[in-house]
Design a protein around this nucleic acid. Structure first.
Lengths: 189, 189
DNA sequence: GCGACACTAGACAGACCTGTCTGTTATCGT
DNA sequence: ACGATAACAGACAGGTCTGTCTAGTGTCGC
């Protein structure tokens, strides 16, 4: 098999289409037919690859989680000091929030109109747990006296920045959060 | 007519049912039939009173906005100093977030899975504008050097607290936001 | 008493949704 | 060459959704 498959598999195209449509319009609003049409794929291929719409939604959210993790961990490499790495999370959010098509947190959006039990909840808590742990770790590396407490505060800022940027796209809101985070770092060294 | 009407009108019962069901399960998830059944009302009554489901959604959001405004303005009366009044907004959120059935911001939840144009967007921006103005006013009364800037920061905290409390009900997250807000007030007097 | 009005009950249309099933075509390892 | 596998196209079933329409019921002012 070649390194880059000449023909993308149906599963990949489905996942790409789902990612695009689900994020832009919502997992509930977008129906199966829209996804398979956008992917150029037969309906049976979806059900052999993912089993159900729930399975596709789960794969979509898992992909969002993995991509977000990779983007952040890779993006933080460019920052030198622990302090800059911590604040860098907000810089990266400012970049994401400036890209066209930014619509806030995919997990929150998916969960807002789904029954709380089920696929969305699971993937959402996994994603949130990772974010929280990221901030705690960065706070510890930055020499915070209470890394757990500072991590909790940073999560509030991060959530607020994401929510605000959703209604108000652009880097402004995340950078406002970044400024508050910097103040937290400075006053509790 | 008596002061308290003996029989609640169909419109009122519909609005109550919509408020309960839409907030708990989402405007998109809950269908017309669920609402009229819960209200004990005929379908025609809904369409003569509100014209369409969109009309009912708009009335639901307007009611949420009005109730939230009243609860906050009334709730802030118990606080004395301008500083306490500003931080009191977070205390009130902590109380709301502790009530059973708290599910975060009704406007964000409704907007997460709706097309951006339309009813939800309009009511949502109205609600956000009011919140923002509230914080700017309170910041000014508290003697902030830059009320607009501080207001923006407080909105980020408020959004973060609401979002966090949705996934993690109880007073903890709003009180974390309150602590950060207090720090902002103290460091920029 | 009576007309206006608000409301109820429920059938119905037309659209859309998920999921299944049939049958056909193409590609690939052996 | 050939069987397995993957993917195609699309009809179909069964359900749910919004919104309309018909027809009947009660209540209130006058």
């Amino acid at each position: 098999m070649p390194v880059t498959s000449p023909r993308r598999t149906a599963r990949e195209r489905l996942l790409d289409a789902a990612d695009e449509l689900f994020y832009a319009e919502g997992v509930h609003t977008v129906g199966i037919d829209r996804v398979i049409e956008h992917a150029g794929v037969a309906k049976a291929s979806l059900y052999t690859a993912f089993g159900s719409k729930d399975g596709l939604v789960r794969a979509y959210l898992q992909g969002r989680h993995r991509e977000r993790r990779d983007r952040i961990t890779r993006g933080l490499d460019r920052f030198g000091t622990p302090r800059d790495r911590l604040l860098g999370v907000f810089d990266l959010l400012a970049e994401s929030a400036s890209e066209p098509g930014f619509r806030g947190c995919a997990f929150y959006n998916a969960g807002a109109e789904s029954d709380p039990s089920g696929v969305v909840r699971e993937e959402s808590t996994a994603n949130r747990a990772w974010t929280r742990q990221l901030f705690v770790t960065l706070a510890r590396e930055a020499g915070a006296a209470d890394p757990e407490g500072l991590g909790r505060q940073l999560v509030v800022l991060y959530d607020g920045a994401t929510t605000g940027a959703r209604q108000n796209p652009g880097p402004e809101v995340p950078l406002t959060a970044r400024r508050i985070a910097a103040m937290l770092l400075d006053t509790t060294p």
